[in-house]
């Protein structure tokens, strides 16, 4: 699993390649919080290349969402496949997150 970060306009796009699970969730948290500390406010997490997410991975997204909102920032999720999307729907986290079908939509104003 790796996290790739890039800037697209004023957005910070983080791609999750592999799994987002209990063993690596803190790495994502550190990555996003470091960018938040540097002044980034608009975040998109891209799940195009993500295999699966466990409850700890979902939890870290909830936690990051709070941290970003506290700084008046914005977090969007993009490109969840059907399985991942179902995970958010089962847990009702689709009501908490701003979920977009693809990266282009997530980057649109």
């Amino acid at each position: 699993m790796t996290f790739n970060i890039r800037s697209v306009g004023d957005a910070t796009v983080i791609s999750v390649d592999g799994q987002l699970i209990v063993g690596n969730r803190q790495e994502l948290k550190r990555t996003v919080l470091a960018e938040l500390e540097r002044g980034a406010r608009r975040f998109v997490i891209d799940f195009t290349r993500t295999g699966y997410i466990d409850s700890s991975g979902l939890g870290i997204l909830v936690s990051l969402s709070k941290s970003i909102r506290k700084e008046r920032g914005d977090l969007r999720l993009a490109s969840l496949n059907d399985d991942l999307r179902t995970l958010f729907e089962l847990t009702k986290l689709d009501t908490l997150f701003d979920i977009h079908a693809n990266l282009r939509d997530a980057l649109a104003d």
Binding site: S55, L58, G59, L87, T91, L96
Partner: peptide, 21 residues
């Protein structure tokens, strides 16, 4: 139940629910 409105914003408590689901 992690789906209760008061539990949705919590970062934890979804593991057993996901197993069962």
């Amino acid at each position: 139940d992690p789906r209760l409105p008061e539990n949705i914003p919590r970062p934890d408590g979804r593991g057993i629910f996901l197993m069962r689901a």
